[in-house]
Design a protein around this nucleic acid. Sequence first.
DNA 1: TATTAATAAATGACTGGTTATTTATTAAAT
DNA 2: ATTTAATAAATAACCAGTCATTTATTAATA
Lengths: 221, 221
Amino acid sequence: MSKIIDQIKDVEHALPKWRRRPKCRPDDILDGALKEFCLCGYARARIEDIANHAGLSKGSVYLYFDSKEEMLKALIRRSVTPIALSLTEVAGHMGEDKEQTCAEILRKMLKLTATRFLDQKTGSIPLLIIGEAGNFPELPEFYRDEVIEVSMKAIETVIASGVKNGEFRPINIKLAIRSLMSIVIMQVIWNGVFKRKGEATITTDELINSHLDLFLNGALA
Amino acid sequence: MSKIIDQIKDVEHALPKWRRRPKCRPDDILDGALKEFCLCGYARARIEDIANHAGLSKGSVYLYFDSKEEMLKALIRRSVTPIALSLTEVAGHMGEDKEQTCAEILRKMLKLTATRFLDQKTGSIPLLIIGEAGNFPELPEFYRDEVIEVSMKAIETVIASGVKNGEFRPINIKLAIRSLMSIVIMQVIWNGVFKRKGEATITTDELINSHLDLFLNGALA
DNA sequence: TATTAATAAATGACTGGTTATTTATTAAAT
DNA sequence: ATTTAATAAATAACCAGTCATTTATTAATA
């Protein structure tokens, strides 16, 4: 008996009860939060489980975030910044290569957006927002300002210039943007909600190329 | 003082504490549930509030539904039935009018679907499913079988016959369906999540006509 | 028709479990 | 020795689901 106790004491002595991890915390916690939020939804996700993902106890989470709600907001904010950045970057590069058709720029933008959202991590953010829109109306509000409006503006510029230079016929630009972008949303929802596991995934390239082909050339013979 | 008490007693005597409403209950309760689920999400919605919407007390709800989860499932089931019915009906009528182009049949189907989902009540069902997919994987499963697969099959038939008779060029039908239907999902999410109140709503006709115009004729000049 | 018994509908106080957040305390690091 | 990071345990609120009780309605009986 005393042998066993000694062993336990040894182990206790060997492994410190916890270690200090000063740099990383908030980001690790958000990773855990994303996992749990996606798995059970915001309301059912337990702080303790989130904490465990990051190798912490429940209480420690509160050293980094004031509340569960703040965690959700921080999570959204973190995912938004790189998207907004990369889109404005593409918009900035537009017009550099005079040879490039507007159609090709659109393809580039669509693929960029699709790639971002159809990778599992970013793609679950819109789903989260959709699910929590009722409880936290600031989330869609914020997302719309920071992501949707920005991307729509960027695409609008491209389509408008295509219409002006005669590459596109005179279409309703606002509506065309919707028709163009809708495929990304559809696919995010398909992959995240309806796709059965094991079922073959349509590749982003296939999807976007087909959609753009239809968008540009139409289905009529 | 006694006057007031008398008045209260009168009122108490005049109005029975509750009334019997034998026929309607389950459906009224589901209406309340839909309202509350949309407002706060499934997890936060309180049975008591749902009951109050239907003019009942919490306990009475359990005379009609075994649990909160059963309510959610019943709600989804109720919304699914009429959709499946109307779609199979349209599919059944197909080919009656030989003069009708496939494009026009597609327009009719898209408008039917869009109208159903863009009326507030039905439109919130997919949003609910998206939000609760993590907790209740049976919901998307069920919805996919009963609504999505059925509608896709119906549309597939039309497009395929259009390709066969030369009205459409040889396109990838599975992908074309996605491109075609995506606009409805996009709009459901836009209206239910991102649209600011007071903001002008795009009419279903505008949306579908524009989308079909692009789908059929393309954007190129 | 009036009275009374039986049944159906509805209630609301209560229980038990769950979990976000707070606090007192302990251990690591410097 | 002091500061910082972390913990574990306590607190407090919340809410689904139960159940003993009450009230309305209906039917049977006199």
